[in-house]
Amino acid sequence: MNGQGIVHEIHPVELPGPLVPAGAEPIVRATKIEKYFGRNHVLRGCSMTVYPRETITILGRSGSGKSTFLRCLNFLEEPSAGRVEIDDTAVEARPLGDRPRAERERIRKLRTDAGMVFQEFNLFPHLSVIGNLVEAPVHVKHVARPAATELAESYLEKVGLIDKRNEYPSRLSGGQRQRVAIARALTMEPKVLLFDEPTSALDPSLVGEVLKVMESLAHEGRTMIVVTHEMQFAREAADRIYYMHEGQFVEIGPHTQVIDDPQDPRTREFLARFLGPSRSRQAAATPQDEAVAPPPAVGPGPV
């Protein structure tokens, strides 16, 4: 039962990006995701369609539900309603009662298809860098250790950390840790990468090296969904930007719309705070969440 009840509707502006092969089916379909924390209604019917080789950016102020949405995509958070489909693996929300074994296996499949990079890195401190990378391929996909190691080394090379192969995470800088975390996700060869504010925990001087890796991944056609406050990254790498406000995507579009010419008053308010009143194109500053004042009281409305 791959979620017959819920029909996925593609939003008119969710058009395949330039890197998407002609006629390709969407690789991620998130359909009408709802999430309650107790009585707190955090996600209110969020849908998203992502085509292969696309990079998606989610913007929104702190507490709007960006992380929760991303975590619902790989069921680190159990959605209260809705359905997630990643590369033909579909799982419906089941907020009440236990999941049968087959469905738990589907969630695991879905998670191996969706690599996640966390704000706090979450490297395994008891394993070396290479150990961090091969752990899941060996113990989840049952890849032989030599093959997994070879693969891991190629991704360490890609993020520029092959010389830290045998180092332990505690000996690395924040930027290096996050690059290892990206390589760890890549070593599972996922279909889509989920990033939750990957540069927000970093010293400003270390943000650049991580963004560079992410940009190169975007340009080589990795499918990515990125929650970030890095406007420059959104502008340069994102095929589409989703602006989240109080648990809803209130504006979807390319950066030329969402950042440069936002149509929704709530997006406009957010960007005005963020980029300064002029919203100049050059302004790529990335103030912390806390610097963003609450928006005016505008009733939530669907996109």
Binding site: N74, R111, F118, E135, M188
Partner: peptide, 19 residues
């Protein structure tokens, strides 16, 4: 965060616990 990282890599609850 350790559990979340392990689960997000597709590890089962048991593997996460042991490894």
């Amino acid at each position: 965060g350790q559990t979340e990282a392990a689960l997000s890599l597709g590890m089962s609850g048991g593997t996460t616990f042991r490894r």
